[in-house]
C-alpha cells in the first residue's frame, strides 16, 4: 500500500476532497500539505509503501496535515 493508493482511496470515498490534498491534474501534493507516518515526513515520497517498514503492526495512523506555515494570496 503506497501513499498514492491511500489518497486514491480517500478521494474515492470522499470526492469533495479532490483538489484539497493534491492537484487534480498533475496529482502533485499541494505545497502546504504534509504526509506523516511512523514518525517520519513522507511528503516527498508518494510511491513509498506505508503499510510496511514501520516496525509496527500496520495500524499506525497516516496523517495528512497542513504545513507549519501561514496562508497566502490577497487576503493574507
Amino acid at each position: 500500500m503506497t501513499q498514492r493508493s491511500v489518497i486514491d482511496a480517500l478521494e474515492a470515498a470522499y470526492p469533495m476532497l479532490r483538489g484539497t490534498i493534491r492537484d487534480t491534474v498533475k496529482q502533485q501534493r499541494r505545497p502546504m500539505v504534509r504526509f506523516f507516518a511512523c514518525g517520519q515526513d513522507l511528503s516527498n515520497e508518494p510511491g513509498r509503501c506505508v503499510a510496511a517498514g514501520c516496525g509496527g503492526e500496520g495500524v499506525e495512523p497516516y496523517l495528512i496535515v497542513g504545513a507549519m506555515a501561514g496562508g497566502t494570496n490577497r487576503a493574507g
Binding site: 469533495m16 484539497t20 499541494r30 497542513g66 501561514g70 494570496n73
Partner: peptide, 20 residues
C-alpha cells in the same frame, strides 16, 4: 486556504448547516 485550496459548500437551510 493556502493549505488545502478550494472547497464549495452548499446549505439547504439558510446557512445553519453546510455540506461540502
Amino acid at each position: 486556504t493556502g493549505w488545502f485550496g478550494q472547497l464549495i459548500q452548499v446549505s439547504d437551510d439558510g446557512g445553519k448547516s453546510w455540506t461540502p
